[in-house]
Amino acid sequence: MIDLGFLTSIFPYLIQGLVFTLELSVLGFILGFFLGVTLAVLRLSNDKLLSSISSLYIDLIRGTPLLVQILIIYFGLPSLGLYFDPITAGVLAIGLNSAAYQAEIIRSGIKSIPKENIESAQSLGLTDFKIYKFVVLPLAIRNVIPALTNELVTLVKDSSLVSVIGVAELTRRGEYIIAWTFRPFEVYLLVAMIYFVICYFLSKLSSKLEKVLAVPGFFSAKE
């Protein structure tokens, strides 16, 4: 039923699609990270206006499907004179979407920092910017590495949605092969396997990263 020779022959073509999948998800993740940090900091700021703009953004993004966001950016924005090639549109959509989720993750990381650590940083005479840069964010991000990796894994999977605007990523290439060969079961199975291996590998990497960045002694301390 499953023809290994066939699978081997389509494998290289699919792997080229994986490059796009990773490009979409990794670049989208990075864009989402920096935007997410910004949104989290704004959301927690004392400035009511900035804080509510950030909340509104997060709610809007989380309350609408990624697929629709992709379609708006690729097909909708041109009517405002903004044109993107499919890959750029995909990275933008994923990044803008992920930013909302990463903002909430990072916000929870910030809130888990002992208040005294922040007061201590303030008491030294550090500016707010330096407090965030050197104390708050390094501690917050350590606290949420598993959640952030989880988000990256989600993006790897969700990047398959970008196939609708014609990016020849992993899923799209699978569909091409099926159109040529009419063998959906084997092809989709192989596509799924490739996603799984990547996501599995990323989760393992996360535990490693968590260990490397762990604050020595912090979790064994009782006080």
Partner: peptide
């Protein structure tokens, strides 16, 4: 900010940065 840089503060706990 300047005043704080001239005042030292030791808390009950968590004065040091754990990382």
């Amino acid at each position: 900010i300047k005043v704080r840089s001239e005042i030292g503060f030791v808390f009950q706990n968590y004065t040091l940065f754990p990382h």
